[in-house]
Amino acid sequence: MTVRVDGVDYEFSSLEEAVRFALKMAKSKGAEVQLHNGTFHVE
């Protein structure tokens, strides 16, 4: 599972870890999280 934040990809071994990271980053940026074909994008 890959989480992309500001064009940088972060790899996670589990969906749970990836979701937690994506939500944490989105909250800190006041951004939204989108899921596309198994890849999260924080914008």
Rank of each mutant, 00 (worst) to 15 (best):
G7H: 03
S28C: 15
L23E: 13
K27T: 15
E43D: 11
A31V: 12
G7M: 04
F21P: 00
K29T: 13
A31D: 05
E11R: 12
Y10K: 01
E17G: 03
H41W: 13
A31P: 03
A18S: 02
T2Q: 05
E17C: 15
H36V: 14
G38M: 07
V5E: 01
V42W: 08
E11G: 08
L15F: 14
H36P: 03
E16G: 08
S14G: 03
F21E: 01
L35G: 03
E17F: 02
A18M: 02
E11Q: 12
V33H: 03
R4Y: 04
R20M: 11
E11S: 12
V19L: 14
K27F: 14
A22F: 04
T39P: 06
M25S: 04
F40S: 06
V8Y: 06
F21S: 00
E16M: 10
M1S: 08
F40L: 14
R20L: 10
L23T: 10
S13D: 12
M25V: 12
L23K: 09
G30Q: 06
D6H: 04
R20S: 10
Y10E: 00
R4F: 05
Y10H: 05
L15S: 08
R20E: 13
Q34L: 12
F40T: 06
S14L: 05
N37P: 04
G7P: 00
V3D: 00
F12G: 00
S28N: 13
H41N: 07
L15W: 13
V5Y: 07
V42S: 06
L35Y: 13
V5C: 12
T39L: 09
V19P: 00
Q34P: 03
K24V: 11
Y10P: 00
A26D: 07
R4E: 03
K27P: 07
V3E: 00
T39Q: 10
A18R: 00
V8Q: 08
E11P: 08
S14I: 04
V42N: 04
F12I: 01
E32H: 13
G38D: 07
E43S: 12
T2R: 10
S13K: 11
G38N: 08
E16L: 10
K27E: 15
T39S: 10
E43I: 15
V19Y: 15
E43F: 13
